[in-house]
Simulated scan of single mutants.
Amino acid sequence: MALEVETKDCTALSDSEICEMAELVSGESVYFDVGHLSKQRDAWVLVTHVRDGSRLVAYGFCTLERVGGDPTVLMGAGATKRSARRDSALRAMVNAQLRRAVLAFPDEDVLVAAQMADAATFTAFKPLDRVVPRPGYEPNGEDRAWGRRLAKRFDVQGEYKAREFRVYGDGGPSFVLNHTAARPEAVPADVAALFDGYDTRNGDAMIAFGWATREDLAKLL
C-alpha cells in the first residue's frame, strides 16, 4: 500500500490530530506530548502527515520563508513511527515539504534546515548538497553564520555553540526531527561520530542544513 501524504496549514490541525501525533512515539529519549505539540501548532505554518492506510506513521512541522534573504525550508518538530517503513515515511514527508518549496521559490536553490538528535536523521538530507556539518568537512565562517541565524530562528532551548553546530540542552526537549534507524549498525560510523556525547534526554541537538538545487527540486513536480 502506498503511503499517503498531506500537508496543510497548522490552523487546520485539530486537537484529535495533536493527540494522535503525541501517541506516535512514547517512552523514548525524544518525546513531544500534547502540550509541546499544541505550542508547535501555534509556532509553525504547515504540518505534514504521512499515513500508511489509516495509521499515522510520520509527521513534521515546517515553514517556508526567507532567512538571511535566501529561500528556506525550516523543518520543526517531527517524528517517524518505529516501523519497517520509517525510512520511506521520512522520505515521503521531506519530499512533500520540498515540493512545496519549489512552488514557493521557483528557479531558486533552497536551504533546508532542521534540528537533529540522532545520526539516522541524516537520511532526510541525502537529496541535499553542501550539508553542514558533515564528516570530513571543516565548516567556514559563512557556515557558522548560517548556524547562528538558524539557531535564532529555531529559538533553540539551551545554549548554542556555533563552532560545533550543537545545542546544549537545558533539560527540556529540543524540537528536533526525531528519526531512528531500523538497523543502527547501518548508520555510517563517521556520521554517528558527529553525535558522540549527545544527551538527548537533556535536549542536546544538532542544527544541520543543506541546499536543494533548483534542478533537483524541479524533478519533484
Rank of each mutant, 00 (worst) to 15 (best):
T48S: 14
F61Q: 08
Q40I: 00
I18L: 12
H49M: 14
A58R: 09
V34I: 12
G35Y: 07
V45Q: 15
G76Y: 07
E28D: 11
V67H: 11
T72A: 06
G68A: 03
D70H: 08
G35A: 01
S38R: 15
G27S: 01
R41T: 09
D33Q: 14
T63H: 07
S38V: 05
D15F: 10
V57M: 05
E17A: 05
V73I: 04
V5D: 05
V45S: 14
V25G: 08
L13R: 07
S16M: 01
G53F: 03
D42V: 00
V57R: 05
R55S: 12
R55C: 02
A77E: 01
E23V: 00
E28F: 06
S54M: 11
V57F: 07
E65R: 07
T7A: 12
S83P: 00
Y31F: 12
E17S: 10
V73E: 08
R66K: 13
G35H: 08
R41D: 09
D70A: 14
C62K: 10
T11V: 10
G27H: 04
L56S: 11
E20C: 06
G60N: 08
L56P: 13
L37P: 06
L56K: 10
L3C: 10
C19Y: 09
G78H: 04
T72N: 02
V67M: 08
C10W: 09
G27D: 10
V30F: 03
S54N: 15
R85K: 09
D33I: 03
D33C: 08
T48N: 04
K81N: 02
A77D: 02
P71G: 00
C10S: 14
